[in-house]
Design a protein around this nucleic acid. Structure first.
Lengths: 385, 385
DNA sequence: TCCAGGTGCTAAATCGGATCAGCACGGGCG
DNA sequence: CGCCCGTGCTGATCCGATTTAGCACCTGGA
């Protein structure tokens, strides 16, 4: 810090009023506190001419609000895919005049406690506790020392802290809907579906995506052809599962439970001498980087990282009022829509019966009414050097 | 902030001493200030039992040091590749009891100024101004209001601010050395070399890498076969350049100026019916994610992002003393070694004449004495979902 | 006996704003 | 003439630490 910062006392002296008056004027309470228009003008001019900026540290000491938020993540911060969580939080914080402390716990509970405490020591207005993938977590005790929200996570223990998570169930509906809308009313198989026990620890995506898919297919009276579980959601597993599926039967559409599984599925389909989407359509989840790299581009239901980050900050800053809405004591769980990214992996077989006939210009691609575009898409990812 | 935080006054009261005495004890100046062993013990016990934690906001107001650092980047924060810059800074800061404010300017000078000011308003101890790729930047005026360092950037205007950059010249020496050590003493071509004017604006890598390469080849008496410039360092350019090269002549080794160019070169080599490394060896720079994905794995000189981030924080916190070392008024430029990542893209033709004969177990791979391993390699990058 | 010097602490000021509790002045009214 | 009230401000206190200045007591030497 430079030693020559202009203080409120300087401004007051230069305007010929008391520090109190200057404070009132600059905090917008001039009229309310009956400061004359003339004096107000003098104060404002002095502030402008001296380049006065209020010292937030001292304000924070007195008022207890620091215009600062803590962002504590397990490993999100330096992870390529979910850096958008931070980006959204950063943007929302800036819009509302806040700055973000960011740190990583690396999954270590002691470190987590230490970092949360360090943030409280610095008087943060609240803490965003973020998880790299959507899951249940046990809320650390240190968090109760102030306002907080859970980002990409829900509390496994009882806790009054609100959560922000992607709407995975609706994503399941969207994925199934894409196929239905494109006229696939038969021979739809699932890659990566797993009974709840076989799912990554605490992960919610597997269960909820399946639920949304099943609900939508049921409602349309479409039976599932098959559902192959995968031990882990990696390309290799997707490859194995799809190969086994193709040995048994011939699907015309696949719903893969994430993009990495879908990449494996692509490989297996190709190995079987078939093509996407001519022989088999593929829909998936996440909108991983690879979804745009594979050919044909993968139609997928995107994790709305940017929006999740934004929402977390907004809920945190507007927080506490959640409890007044409704009489239930359970903490709010805010679900963020997962937008569909339409690419080239779904073949349009026929317009869906339930859809209005397509207009002249929109024969191909058929996004249909299910497409939900995120309020602002991610920026292009840049290379290094 | 919770209302029931324990304050120093509480501790003092509970220990039966004055707040002054308590402050002395807890700041480690108890003996110096002649507080009796008994009183010291009482204070420490009270602090422990009440769970006292000093309020950094108030300390900051009094002492002007907030144990807080600002990290201002253009777009680094949410970029997959260079998130390691932040990770290194985060680790170093935590080791020294500091927390990081992180923000992105998106290249907008107004936003940059606004964010730097916002950080100064919060009493940061210093600011790290980071750039996504190594380049010259004009140091914003707002930065002179406190200690600062430039990360991955050097000042184009006169400025007393120290810089932390990768040692690109030495990286050039390393890349050329890898080939020489593997016995390539002929037919070495460069892909991506460019006259200074044709280089990305302000980028230093092109010039310095070339300088190191040329110096090392010269010293070994090896003439360059050819050097093809590339308008931009992307796979397509690398592909085009290599294709043109292969039409003219037949190199046995390529030095590509970054990994993306090398990926293009791989493609062109394959199209020409040749193989890496049997027909043509390839060395490159950056250690981009793709360097480990392509087959054969690409031997490359890594950008030491993690170390750069660490060093920036250390220089910042130890700063100001730079000027005293040496009589020259120019700001310090700290160059961080770029470690070699040996993979499988370089064929060993023969042990280099200048090298000692290889030991029994190390016939292949020949890392040689040039290999510099970073103090701690990057963690594995995790997927999402 | 007196005082210098050491021991073991404490009162009060300070950092820069926010805020509570008034205070001086002028005009209108009874 | 005295009182009340609205206008337009100001003094003092507070937030929670750090730090300067200094005070009371005791011991030992002259």
């Amino acid at each position: 810090m430079a030693t020559n910062r202009v203080t409120l006392a300087d401004v007051a002296r230069s305007a010929g009023v008391s520090q109190t008056a200057a404070s009132f004027v600059l905090s917008g309470r001039g009229a309310e506190m009956r400061i004359s228009a003339d004096a107000q003008e003098r104060v404002r001019r002095a502030a402008r001419e001296t380049g006065y900026r209020p010292n937030i540290v001292s304000r924070s000491l007195r008022t207890g609000t620091s215009h600062t938020i803590g962002f504590v993540s397990d490993t999100v911060a330096t992870t390529p895919f979910a850096g958008h969580l931070i980006w959204g939080a950063l943007d929302a914080a800036r819009e509302r005049g806040h700055l973000l402390f960011i740190c990583e716990t690396e999954g270590d509970p002691d470190l987590e406690r230490e970092l949360i405490d360090a943030m409280h020591d610095r008087g943060v207005d609240g803490i965003v506790l973020a998880s790299m993938y959507t899951r249940k977590i046990t809320v650390p005790r240190a968090l109760i020392n102030g306002p907080a929200v859970l980002l990409n996570a829900v509390a496994s223990n009882r806790s009054p802290i609100p959560s922000i998570v992607p709407d995975e169930t609706d994503a399941g509906r969207t994925a199934a809907g894409v196929l239905l809308d494109a006229g696939h009313t038969d021979r739809i198989a699932l890659i990566g579906a797993a009974p709840p026990r076989q799912t990554p620890k605490g992960s919610l995506a597997a269960v909820q995506r399946l639920q949304g898919i099943a609900e939508t297919l049921d409602r349309a009276g479409v039976a599932m052809l098959d559902a192959i579980p995968c031990p882990e959601w990696q390309p290799r597993s997707g490859y194995e599962a799809t190969r086994r599926l193709l040995e048994k039967t011939t699907p015309t559409a696949l719903i893969c439970f994430n993009d990495r599984l879908a990449v494996g599925a692509y490989q297996a389909i190709s190995d079987a001498g078939l093509e996407v989407p001519e022989d088999i359509s593929v829909v998936s989840f996440d909108d991983d980087l690879i979804a745009d790299w594979v050919r044909p581009g993968l139609t997928t239901v995107a994790l709305p990282h940017y929006e999740l980050g934004r929402k977390a900050v907004h809920v945190l800053l507007d927080g506490g009022h959640d409890r007044s809405t409704g009489a239930d004591a359970r903490p709010a769980i805010h679900k963020i829509a997962m937008p569909l990214r339409t690419r080239d992996s779904v073949r349009v077989v026929a317009a869906a019966a339930s859809e209005p006939p397509p207009g002249p210009g929109e024969v191909l691609g058929s996004p249909g009414p299910r497409e939900v575009l995120g309020p602002s898409g991610p920026r292009e990812v840049l290379g290094q050097t």
